[in-house]
């Protein structure tokens, strides 16, 4: 890799590999473990899960954020990256490890990566799915400063036995209002995976939020 970097500094496809950070150490089994955590998170919304994977992704990504994208994205899934994370190292990281197309317009993305939650685009700016194909909606990987110190929000819906409390910090003030609109148009709407450090929480569109 070093020899390659001095020669050209780029892998085939024009990816700058000079300072490329490593992806999942054991792609087969690491991605299986991360996926099971994601599945558990989506099946039991609002309940934080800790990943074991010790990733060292480029700034400003947290390990859980990178792990989720590395596990789910490939050449079939256009990825949209928000402005603060849209740096050459991050672009190279996902282009190299996932091979996913990076898109400029959030509407075209199957996955949206948000690292600066406070300035994130409104939820309506992502693909909402179609009446007959609600699965064709975007999944957002939403990195927040903390999943335990934010304002308490009560969640209820499929996957939750009664109620679950989510304490995500750093969300814009319109977020839960938008989420109510998102849930109201069920079965359409975006699904969200919130990440912070190595923790992640699932927030599928079927979940209603209060308070």
């Amino acid at each position: 890799m070093a020899a390659m970097a001095t020669l050209a500094g780029s892998a085939p496809g024009g990816i700058d590999t000079t300072d490329l950070k490593p992806g999942l150490a054991d792609p087969v089994h690491d991605s299986q473990r991360v996926f099971r955590a994601l599945l558990e998170a989506m099946a039991r919304p609002g309940r934080p899960l800790q990943l074991e994977e010790g990733l060292d992704p480029p700034f400003p990504l947290d390990p859980a954020t990178a792990a989720a994208v590395l596990t789910l994205c490939d050449h079939d899934t256009p990825l949209w990256i928000d402005w603060i994370a849209d740096t050459p190292p991050v672009r190279a990281y996902f282009s190299f490890h996932c091979g996913c197309p990076l898109v400029e317009r959030s509407q075209q993305a199957a996955f949206g990566l948000v690292s600066d939650a406070e300035n994130m685009p409104r939820l309506g700016l992502f693909a909402q799915g179609l009446d007959k194909y609600p699965d064709r909606s975007a999944t957002l990987v939403l990195q927040v400063p903390s999943l335990s110190e934010g304002l308490a929000v009560q969640l209820s819906g499929p996957g939750i036995d009664g109620r679950e409390t989510l304490r995500a910090a750093g969300l814009p003030d319109w977020f839960w209002n938008d989420w109510r609109l998102n849930a109201a148009q069920f079965p359409l709407g975006v699904d969200i995976i919130m990440t912070s450090g190595r923790a992640l929480v699932g927030l599928p569109r079927s979940i209603a939020a209060e308070g």
């Binding site: 792609p27 299986q32 599945l39 994205c73 999944t139 569109r205 079927s206």
Partner: peptide, 18 residues
């Protein structure tokens, strides 16, 4: 692995829309 990823994405969407 590519097939698994595709199926995994479908499973997550299936869970989101019961």
């Amino acid at each position: 692995e590519q097939t698994k990823r595709m199926i995994r994405r479908c499973i997550l969407k299936a869970v989101a829309v019961p």
